[in-house]
Structure formats: structure tokens, C-alpha cells
Design a protein around this nucleic acid. Structure first.
Lengths: 228, 228
DNA sequence: AGGTCGGGCGTACGCTGTACGCATGACGAC
DNA sequence: GTCGTCATGCGTACAGCGTACGCCCGACCT
């Protein structure tokens, strides 16, 4: 068993896992725009091209990072709770993950899923199946739910950051939105500004719309296939 | 009235409007990645830096393009139809616009709205108000509807193009998705592949989920404020 | 005729992703 | 031991990006 003679300034060697983790860390901290291959390499204490021994391309890097994030999402124990509670829990877990890693939403829409994401999708469908949803309605329900998760979170994040800080976003609203011509919109934005609804602290609203969707789906299901 | 002596190879002069229109055209044809300031300038027969006399930055360009797209959306005549039909029509018009200009969805989530987009938002809220939605529920309904429009369309587009063509997307699914471990997902994708549901040709599905949302909202409204 | 101004453009800078090829060191075969 | 193989780290280089800066020229006003 020959151990490598560690040179001074020893660095733990590169590996795909280490690179992906560092990528997530960097993107969390600096945003997606702050994640360049060079910066990532520097962050790890290596040179750019060394990364390419473990990662095929930046696209590959992002896909890997995305699946790492997907791995953080707890899957509900099947059977211990009803399909509705389980679906809600899974949705809330994904919502939280997207808020923890704000870059993930936009990236996920145009990158291919990895194993962990497939697993989440399959679980969502399985829960719907357990809830008695079949065929077309299951497909529709799947879309409605996943769209709500991704879309709600995206909107929530968009309201907070306009490429800059919250301040610049609201400052622009004050400057540019003609409140006289758009009274309802001005009011709606007031609702967003309300400290009682500061960003990230309204799982209630996320859940409210989710329940709205689940209610609608159940009603459709019972319409096609009346209970009892 | 001195008319400019037109030199040979006369070009119609640059203007913000012309640049924005060309930008939309180029992005429609080549995708967002194909739209660079250099390419846009070349497309117009000018040099890059000339664009900056009419456009402050690429961000400004994109915001302008976005509002041009928003201007294409027909606003419903208030009062001629009920709030529900009007809301549905407005949503469908936006959906169509996002499909016509596939780059617009992603861009709109992180660029500031211009006048035409404000107008659409205000109209949406006004329709909800006409439908008897107030306060919190109006805010929630607004989100549910706009999220459906943006999210549904984004998902629809994502299924069609994975940075490449539809073929490569489905080819990767065939290669990478473990159909045995994920039977429901494989089935769901079969549903997407079904020629009866080829992309862009299922306003039905879009409308179905939209109605699901509108139903849910009306029910909530009547719960708070029973009719008659 | 002179002054001012705005649009077009040439150059240049710092940044990006990544192709290519070289250097080094670990390891198995002989 | 010594050699061949192979993986990993890295230096250089290239094409492309957004855009700051400053020059030039023609149109217009006085």
C-alpha cells in the first residue's frame, strides 16, 4: 500500500463529486452569473482545464449540480400518509430546495434530468396513481403540480431580485410604474412589499394555490369516476 | 426642406424601433443564444457600436424586445364578455405570444416590465376585480393565472427542445431513462410523444388546467362571499 | 462661416468556454 | 529495476462576448 507522497501545500485531489459540490456552493453564493469555469477552478485551488478531466462541459457541470440539488429533496414514505399529504410534502420540499438554490429553477428548465430528478418525477406520478388518477388526467395533474412548484418559486424569486437587489427592483417600480394608470397593479405590488409577506416566508401562499390545484384535480377525478 | 443626399448603398437609418424589431426577428429565428450585439448589427448592416446610440445595453435591448412582444397581445374588450371568458382569452393570447417568441418566457422572468406588460398585468387584475375578487384572494388568483401561463408554456417548450432538436431530447430519454425503474415516467413521456399531442397543438390542455384554476378561484370566492 | 451636436464606427479590454498538447507521477508487466 | 500505459494536472491559444472610449463627419442653427 503505497500512499502518495503528498507535496507541500497538499490539496485533496479533484473529483467529480467535489467539483459539483463546489459548483453548488459557488452558485448559491454568487449566483449563476458568478459561476464560471475559471472561478470555480480558482475556488478549488486548481487550474481551469483540470476540471475538464472530471466534467465534460459546463452543461455537464450544471446537470450534475442540478441532480445534486435534487438529491436533497426528501421523498415521502409511500403508504404512511395519504397521497394528498405526501404530494404536498414533496411539493413543499422541492419548493424549499429551489429557494435554497435560487439558480436551480432557471437552469432546470433547459437541462436534462439526472437520476435524482427522474426519481422525484416518478414519485410524483406514483402519488397521483395512488390517488386514483389515471391516463390523461394523471398527465394533466402532473403538469399542474410541477408547474406550480417551478413557476411559483420562479415568480417569487423574480420579485425579490431584478438582477440586482430588492431595493433596485422596487426603486424601479417607484420610478417607472404609472400608479395612476395602473392602480390595481400598484396595489398588488404593495401586497408584495408588505413585510408580513416578505419573500421566502409564505409557504402558506404556496400551499394555498397547491391545494387549489389538488382540489380541482380531485373534483375532476370524481367527475369521471365517482367515489363509492 | 433638405433631404439627406443618400449615398450609394443607402441604408434606412437606425432607430430604436428598427433595432428592437430586428432583435425579435433574430431571436425568433436563431434563438436567444443566437442573438449577440455583433450579429444583430450585422443583420442590420451596421457596426456593433452604432446600436448603442439607440439602446443603452443588451439588457435594455431585451426589455424593449419583450415589450414589443407584449404589444402583440390583444386585450379583451371590457364588459363585452364575462370576466371568465375575457380572462381565458387574455391567457390564451399570452400563451400564443410566448409560443411565437420562444425566447420571451425565460427572458421575462428576469427583466423589468415595460408599459405594454404593465398594461397586461393591470388588465388581468381588473378582470379579477370584475369577477368579484378582492384583497388577498385577488392577489393569489393573479399569481395562479400568470404562473400557469408562464409555467405551462415554459414546460411545453422545454419538452420540445433540449438546447438542440426534439430528436436529441427524446433520443437522450431513450438512452438515459431507466424505463424499468420509472415506468410511470416512461408512460408520461409516451404521452408527450403522442402525435395527437404534438407541441403547440394543445390549447385544450392549456385551457383545461386554466379552467381548473378558475374553478378553484371561484369556489374560494363564493366560500368567502356566498352568491346572492 | 462657424459652432454645436448626434449618429456611425474603429479600437481595445476583460471576460467567457474549451480544444490541444505537454508534463508528471502511479501502477502493472516483465 | 525498467519499461509502457494511463490518468490527471496544467499552459497556451482561439473565437466569441458586452461595452467603454474617442474620433470623424455631415446636418442644422445662428
Amino acid at each position: 500500500m503505497t500512499t502518495a507522497p503528498v507535496p507541500e501545500g497538499a490539496r485533496t485531489p479533484l473529483s467529480r463529486a467535489r467539483i459539483l459540490a463546489a459548483g453548488v456552493e459557488l452558485a448559491d453564493a454568487q449566483g449563476l452569473a458568478g459561476l464560471s469555469m475559471r472561478r470555480l477552478a480558482a475556488h478549488l485551488g486548481f487550474e481551469v482545464m483540470s476540471l475538464y478531466n472530471h466534467v465534460a462541459s459546463k452543461q455537464d457541470l450544471l446537470e450534475g449540480m442540478l441532480d445534486l440539488v435534487a438529491a436533497e429533496v426528501d421523498l415521502p414514505d409511500p403508504g404512511t400518509v395519504g397521497w394528498r399529504d405526501a404530494t404536498r410534502a414533496l411539493a413543499v420540499a422541492q419548493h424549499a430546495g429551489l429557494l435554497r438554490h435560487r439558480w436551480a429553477g432557471p437552469v432546470s428548465t433547459d437541462h436534462f434530468p439526472g437520476p435524482n430528478r427522474w426519481r422525484i418525477m416518478e414519485t410524483t406520478l406514483a402519488l397521483l396513481a395512488a390517488g386514483g388518477f389515471d391516463g390523461h388526467l394523471r398527465d394533466l395533474g402532473y403538469h399542474a403540480i410541477t408547474l406550480h412548484i417551478g413557476g411559483f418559486t420562479a415568480q417569487q424569486i423574480a420579485y425579490e431580485t431584478d438582477g440586482g437587489s430588492t431595493d433596485t427592483m422596487y426603486a424601479r417600480v417607484d420610478r417607472e410604474l404609472d400608479a395612476a394608470a395602473h392602480p390595481l397593479m400598484a396595489d398588488h405590488i404593495r401586497y408584495h412589499r408588505d413585510p408580513g409577506h416578505t419573500p421566502g416566508e409564505r409557504p402558506d401562499e404556496f400551499r394555498f394555490v397547491l391545494d387549489l390545484i389538488l382540489d380541482g384535480l380531485e373534483r375532476q377525478r370524481d367527475l369521471v369516476d365517482p367515489p363509492r
